[in-house]
Every structure is written in C-alpha cells, then in structure tokens.
Nucleic acid binder design. Structure first.
Length: 602
RNA sequence: GGUCCCGUAGCUCAAUUGGAUAGAGCAACUGCCUUCUAAGCAGUAGGUUACGCGUUCGAAUCGCGUCGGGACCA
C-alpha cells in the first residue's frame, strides 16, 4: 500500500525525534488491524519499546500522538495491550483506491528487464513415457504452472520447462510387449489416446513377466532368481543395450512409440491448461551427465570404488555416500540430472532452477545440490526443490504400487461430467447454446479440480474429494467462479445506467458517498495485490487460492443485500459499480495466476 | 540405524511466517426466494492447536523430548 510506507517512515521519524533511536523502516511491523478492533493498520511496538527503554503502552501512545500530528494520512489512533491501532483518513483510502482503479497493471509487479539474462526456470510435470499421467501429476502440473505464473506476476523472467524421462528399461518394456503382442496396432487403429496405448503395453509386459516368473518358480527356481532370469526381462535389457548402442531399428521403434505418448500428453496438458517454454529429454542429456561425473573424478571430488562405480562422499554434509554411476558404466537418475542442470545453465544462465517434484525425492535433490557445489559450479545455490506431498482419494490411498492409480484424463472427464449433471439438474442455462454450455462445464469441472488441489499447502498430504470440490456452496472453485460471473452481471446491468459515463471518468466527487461497509470493502480489496506478491516469494498458490475465496465471499455477501442499480441514488450506484470492477479485476487476476478460468456468466 | 515432512472443530482445510479473543467450508440446527444469479445470504453450536518441558512481553508457529501418520537413505 502506498501510505503504508509513509506511515513506516513517520514511525521511524517518531523514534528519532522522541527517543533518539535510528531504526530501519524494514524492521517496523505494520499489519492490517483485526476486525474486532478500531483502526485500519496496526503497528506492533514491542520491539520499538525495547529499543526506547519504555513500556509498550507508553511508546504506543507517544508514537500514536506523533503520527496524528505529523503524518498526513493518519486520522487518529488507539492503543490496546501494546498494539498501536492507526485510523487512516478516508481521503487516503479513497485516493489510493482511485489510483489503483486506473492502474492497468494493478496487482502485478512490472518485470525488470535485466532478469531476462538471469531467468527463473521452473521444471514441472516430468513424466515417464511408458504410462499416462495420474492424479499425482495433476498436483504437480497445477503447482508448477501456478508457481511459474506467480513468479511472472512478481516481475521475474520465467521459463517453464519439462523434463521427459524418455529412455531406460521401462520404455523398453512397453516396446518389447508391443513387438510381441501388438500385431501392428496403433493408437489410430485402436482408438486409444497415445499415452494410454503405450501404457497398455507396459501393463502387458508385466503380465508376461509375471507369468514367466511363476513358471520358473514352479520348476524349482527361487523367486529372486526367477525375477532375474525370466526370458522377457533379459530381452528387455538386451533391447536397452541395443538402444544405447544406437541400433537403428530399436531407435526407430523407440521414436515412434514415444511420439505416440507425446501426442497423448499434449492433449492432457491442453485440457489441464498448462504449457512449457521448453521440453528437455533425458536421452539428450544423460551422456553429458556421464562427462560431469568424469570431471568430478578428475577434480577429485568424486571417487571410484574397486568395482568401477563412482560415488560421492557427503558425510560432511550430514548425508551419506551416494552412487553417481553404476559399475557397468550406465547412468542412474542423478547422472542425468547432473547433465540436465548443466545444459540448462549453459543455455540460460538461470538465477534459480526450481524443481517441482514429489517430496520423496528430497534426498535426491540434496545430493544434486551438494554435488554441484563440490564441483565448484557457483550456480548450485540457485537449485531449489519445491516438494509436494501425495494426494489421497476418499476411496483409499492413491499409490501406483498398489495398483489404484487414478488416471488424470479420466478424472478430468469425470469432473466435467459432474459439472454437466449438476447444471442440467438446476436448469439454469436454457438460453445458452450447446457449444457454450460444453465450454462452461469444462470451466467449472476443471476449476473445481484445480482450486481444490491448489488451496492446500503443497507440503501437506491431502485428500481430494471430487464431490466436495464441485459443490457450489462452500470453499470451492465453482463458488469463486460464480461470484465473478455474478459481479460481471451487475456490471453489465450498471452499464445500461445513464450515469455510467460519470463512472467511467472516475469522478472523485462520488467518493463522498461511501458508507462504512463499502469502505471496509475497499480495504479488503486493496489487501490482495500485496498478498499476491508476498505469496509469490513463498511459492504458495495455496495462499492466493485462499485469499481469492475470502474476497469472493466478502463480495458475494455484500451484493446479496444491496441493490446495485438504484435510480434514486446514482452516486451510490456508481460507486458500487466501481467496487465491482475492482473486485472482478482482482478475482480474475488471482484466478489467472492459479490457471483457473472464470466465465462471464454461469 | 540415520534423515526429512505432517499432526489444528466430527470431516476437509486456513491462520499475513513469532502478534491481539486460532478462522472458513462441509455435516447439524435457526431464519431468509415477487427485486440484481437461492449454484446464494445471515445466524447458532462445535477447540487443552497430539502430549510434556523450554525460549520471551507474546507460541499452532521456534528448540528439546515423547507418541502417532507418511516418505526417503545404506
């Protein structure tokens, strides 16, 4: 807020004049006054009292007195238990509101052009190419996308990047099963989405594999030996070796099947509303990873065991010894990440690289940071792991190991179907054509899903309840969408008012008619842009989601018992329209940061 | 054995990062549709913030320990 910094300056001035204390304005705690107390802003004076050597009550009183007489924005004050509550002049609120109303970039921080040369990279999604996306990916994609958008809104130059794990034994398994059982079938011929098609053969491989293990066990082999010696797994391993050797036939099949998967992913990403500036492929960076390992050996920061495997000793960092390259020279996950991070730095000179990856990988990213530090790359400090926890469903724990994976495409479709069902039951959209209605169902269904997931702190394990998420009552995406659509409806009606021209011109004389409740609403609204910036620094879509809800609820309640178009009181009417415009703008912006669409009407 | 995350109303989640009397929604109960979207609004009830000790003007938040849930490393 503009006058917040004025008030802080005045407090610092008071400290200097009254107690000869020179204090930094950044140490002054200024917060919105709780609604049960009088005042607008509260100065927490305990730390100031300590410096001045007086009791908090006395200090608060004396500073309050000083502010009232010296600070143009301050109208009065009161002191409760050492909290100095400041009453801001109505004029100050109104002029602030007026400024914000006309500011085109309201709520956004203007990007510093110098950041172009040191962008923030946000890596998210990071799928494997052997199966479709699931519920966990949905949380990942939504967090990654919204964090990137929030960072953009706060003035960073952001590049969204994806990392596709397109090589390794798991891909070979799908390929092999397709060769054995596919009979030349394609996604087109089968009518399946590409990623689901390839996923089907991954499952197929597992069936074959399990059958062979059972046969071997029946003929006297131990379970462990059977897993190693099943013909099909050996064949898969041979296929991987052929791939690494660059066998043209293997590479061709690999390319074909991966492209099927990418076509499928593209559809899912589009439906989710996420996008990427660049996609990296592990097949293109794992060799560089091996070079990095070699470099580490030469520098003496890694070491080689007798069997030929390469390790890093991180006991000084409180971690462990960790393998970086297998004895047979093949790469492990971290080998590839060493390579990918290096490629990205060479390409972009990023200031930060934020990995949106599940919290089970925490150890992995600690090792990655530590390895880069030991190698002497100064950018190691820019590597961040944004960890998120698992998503459960009411029907039971969601884990791929237990075979209860919830498919992302199916889930999204179910949400849309549910939105259609509820809307039809309510019969609210008779005047809408079917194409628009379908778009609306998608907006509502996916809004419900996105909001429900994003409103929860990423670090917390959460429960996704589809039925609850799409409820139009309560703390949900559809409720916020509804409020937005309703505000838009009020504006449409207001625009028919003959006094609308006055409103467009922002005639300051209108402000004189504000009532107390409306003034509170201005305060509520003006809080949000700042909160968005703060939230961004903490990478928290959850904060923005919760504030959007708070705002929507406030406005929904307000408009419910106020007739907006009131010919008897044109000033009040127009003032409310101004509030509507601002409320709509803030809601739209915060929802955009979260990647949630808001419809003009519902 | 070691490391990390989580524990808040019956349920799902907040709490401006150490600030005032811990807030929302769902479920339950009361009111409110002839006017702008009732896909809603207003209200009642519901709490030893898992437990203990500590740090300080002040702790759901920080530290130590215990108990529970989960993940990871050899």
């Amino acid at each position: 807020m503009l006058f917040a910094s004025e008030i802080k300056l005045s407090v610092a001035e008071a400290m200097l004049n009254l107690y000869r204390q020179n204090i930094d304005t950044s140490t002054i705690q200024l917060q919105p006054t709780k609604k049960e107390f009088d005042g607008d802003l509260t100065v927490v004076v305990f730390n100031l009292a300590k410096q001045a050597g007086k009791s908090p009550e006395v200090i608060a009183d004396e500073i309050g007195e000083f502010l009232t007489s010296h600070c143009a924005e301050v109208n009065g004050y009161n002191v409760v238990k050492g909290f100095l509550n400041i009453v801001v002049k109505t004029d100050a609120w109104l002029s602030l509101f007026s400024d914000q109303c006309t500011a085109p970039d309201f709520g956004y921080v203007v990007a510093d052009s110098s950041f172009v040369h040191a962008p923030v990279l946000v890596e998210y999604s990071s799928p494997n190419t052997n199966k479709p996306l699931h519920l966990g990916h949905v949380r990942n994609n939504l967090i990654g996308f919204s964090v990137a958008e929030i960072l953009k809104a706060t003035g960073n130059h952001v590049r969204k990047v994806n990392l596709v794990n397109d090589r390794g034994i798991h891909i070979c398994k799908s390929m092999l099963a397709w060769l054995k059982k596919g009979n030349g079938e394609t996604p087109e011929s089968s009518g399946l989405k590409g990623d689901h098609f390839v996923g089907k053969y991954y499952v197929e491989f597992d069936k074959i594999y399990k059958a062979e293990i059972a046969d071997l066990v029946n003929s006297g082999s131990s379970a462990e030996d059977a897993k190693k010696n099943a013909p099909v797994i050996i064949e898969a391993q041979q296929m991987l070796q052929k791939w690494e050797a660059g066998d043209p036939e293997t590479i061709a099949l690999w390319t074909t099947m991966n492209n099927w998967v990418y076509d499928g992913f593209a559809v899912s990403y589009k439906m989710l509303g996420v996008d990427f500036d660049k996609t990296y492929y592990e097949s293109e960076t794992y060799l560089l990873g091996k070079e990095i390992v070699k470099e580490g050996l030469e520098k003496g920061v890694f070491y080689k065991k007798e069997d030929g495997s390469v390790w890093i000793d991180l006991t000084e960092e409180g971690l462990d010894h960790k393998v970086l390259l297998r004895a047979d020279g093949t790469s492990v996950y971290i080998t590839q990440d060493l390579g990918t991070a290096t490629v990205r730095y060479r390409e972009t000179h990023f200031s930060k690289l934020i990995y949106v990856v599940g919290n089970e990988q925490e150890y992995h990213f600690k090792v990655l940071r530590a390895a880069m530090k030991k190698l002497g790359y100064p950018w190691w400090d820019g590597l961040h792991h944004l960890a998120y926890n698992m998503v459960d469903l009411p029907s039971g724990k969601m884990k791929s190991r237990e075979g209860t994976v919830v498919d992302a495409d199916e889930l999204m479709q179910e949400m849309i179907n549910e939105a259609r069902k509820i809307t039809m039951e309510l019969g609210k959209i008779e005047d809408v054509n079917s194409a628009e209605a379908e778009e609306l169902y998608q907006t509502i269904g996916l809004g419900a899903l996105k909001y429900f997931i994003l409103k929860v702190d990423p670090e917390k394990r959460m429960l996704f309840n589809p039925a609850e998420s799409i409820d139009f009552n309560g703390h949900t995406g559809p409720f916020i969408q509804y409020t937005y659509a309703r505000i838009r409806s009020l504006i449409r009606k207001g625009e028919q008012s003959p006094d609308f021209k006055k409103f467009i011109d922002f005639d300051p004389s209108l402000y004189k008619n504000t009532e107390e409740k409306e003034r509170d609403l201005i305060k509520v609204m003006l809080r949000y842009p700042e909160t968005v910036s703060e939230a961004a620094e903490r990478y928290s879509p959850a904060l923005i989601a919760n504030y959007a809800y708070e705002l929507a609820k406030t406005f929904n309640g307000f408009y419910h018992d106020h007739a907006v178009v009131d010919a008897q009181q044109p000033e009040i009417t127009l003032f409310r329209l101004m509030l509507s415009y601002q409320a709509a703008a803030i809601l739209k912006k915060s929802m955009a940061l979260l990647g949630i669409k808001v419809p003009e009407r519902m």
